[in-house]
Simulated assay, not measured.
Amino acid sequence: MSITPTALTRSAGLSAVAAGLLFIGVQINHPHLDADFATTAEYTVRQSLKVLMAGLSLIGITGMYLHQVKQAGVLGLIGYLVFGAGYLIMTSVEVIGAVVFPTLAHTTPAYVNDVFAVATGGHASGDIGLMQVLNLASAATFLGGGLLFGIGLFRARVLARWAAVLLAAGSVATLAFPLLPQVNARLFAIPIGVAMIGLGYSLWRGLRAPAARPLTGTVSSALHPAGTK
């Protein structure tokens, strides 16, 4: 199998589709985050899928940006960099959650509960140190980057514009979560997940190998009397 820019870009599209499906899938029947849940096998599986989702998302948005780098302009570049930083920080947060928190849940469950409270839009009762900054940085870059990148994709007019609008709108809508405490926060992941699926499919579909066309021009010229001269 030869590695070509087209093959890499199509792979990025499939990565975005997979990331969108995972982003939605891990939200389904997600238990309440607390120290007790952090000690279970289900927590480890869900955290591992979140790490995979973040990595696939980063591959996907990189392929989207490179595919339309000229049309995206400065706004597209800024959006990509901020959104990419959001996924990088998200990856670090999820890795910490998968590797460190199961152990801390046995020794310092109050700290784990406070970190989870902040991560889900609540408030910590104690000091969680730099995890507070890391969570804020993750939210700011992910949501801000999703908004800017979505606008950049919409203006570029290369990938599915409805998905670009959904990405930007979904990012903005997530900011309303603190004002809607009665709404399950995990529902806000659905628009962004669907947007990633739509954008990834659009990227993959736009690079499908064109079907072979009959060489009508060559055949007709060969049969034309002038072709014998």
Rank of each mutant, 00 (worst) to 15 (best):
K229W: 00
K70M: 08
L49W: 07
G206R: 12
D127F: 11
L215A: 15
P31E: 02
L75Q: 09
L159G: 13
M131G: 03
L33G: 01
V95C: 01
I197D: 13
A226E: 00
L179I: 00
A169P: 05
G121T: 11
A110H: 15
V115T: 08
T91I: 05
F83T: 00
L66G: 12
P5F: 06
T103D: 12
A124L: 02
I28Q: 02
I89Q: 03
P225G: 00
T228K: 05
A137P: 01
L66Y: 08
P191A: 08
H32Y: 02
I61F: 09
S171L: 04
S48N: 15
I61G: 08
V69T: 13
L21M: 11
T6G: 10
F177A: 14
T9P: 00
Y65E: 04
Y80K: 01
V82W: 01
E94N: 07
D34V: 06
G198L: 13
G152D: 09
I28R: 02
L14Y: 12
L175F: 13
S15G: 08
S125N: 11
F37L: 06
I128E: 02
Y201W: 15
A185C: 00
E42P: 00
A211G: 11
M1A: 08
I128P: 03
T108F: 05
R161K: 13
N184C: 04
K50F: 04
R213F: 03
A195G: 12
A140H: 05
T216G: 10
R46V: 11
P210I: 10
Y65S: 04
D114H: 11
R205E: 15
T6L: 09
T39S: 01
S220V: 07
T174I: 00
A16K: 03
Q27R: 04
A18E: 04
L136F: 02
A19C: 09
V158W: 09
L187M: 10
L215F: 13
E94W: 05
V133H: 05
P225K: 02
